[in-house]
């Protein structure tokens, strides 16, 4: 498992709708904004890269020092972004696919407004479990 990993779902309007620190290293206070900065800046790259490929998993598209950003773009242009320091492409891919499935389930909830924050605790526990499993 990665020592640092920050997972985030960004809606198509570039608004973060879910975020979780899934690394083993306990979260540092000052890291929170740094992670957001890196992921936010990586959106610029995603914007370019997403249309060059038909694949949903864009692999590592951006890096900052030793942190790498991997992105998975869904059909609705919701972006699943992972900031990590380990190199485990297969694991990350599986992680993204399973989270995507979870996210679709959330979308199917008639009470969930697409593009709003995902607050389901069930979703959260599932994502963390997946992170433990794959990352």
């Amino acid at each position: 498992m990665a020592s640092t990993a920050c997972f985030m779902i960004v809606s198509k309007n570039d608004i973060p709708i879910y975020e979780a620190e899934v690394g083993t290293v306990p979260k540092k206070e000052d890291a929170a904004h740094q992670h957001q900065f890196i992921l936010h800046a990586a959106l610029d790259i995603v914007q370019d890269t997403a249309w060059t490929t038909s694949a949903m998993f864009l692999k590592s598209i951006d890096r900052f020092n030793d942190l790498v950003v991997s992105v998975y773009v869904t059909a609705g242009h919701t972006r699943l972004m992972l900031l990590h320091d380990s190199r485990n492409d297969d694991g990350i891919k599986s992680f993204f696919q399973e989270v995507h499935e979870l996210y679709i389930k959330t979308l199917l909830n008639p009470l969930y407004l697409p593009g709003s924050r995902v607050t389901s605790s069930h979703f959260d526990t599932k994502v963390r479990a997946l992170a433990r499993k794959y990352l």
Binding site: F37, I38, H40, A41, A42, D44, I45, D48
Partner: peptide, 15 residues
């Protein structure tokens, strides 16, 4: 980043 086309505003801000 700002001057690149298209402008990469987020990168601009971050840097």
């Amino acid at each position: 980043f700002l001057m690149s086309t298209p402008a990469m505003l987020r990168k601009y801000g971050f840097h």
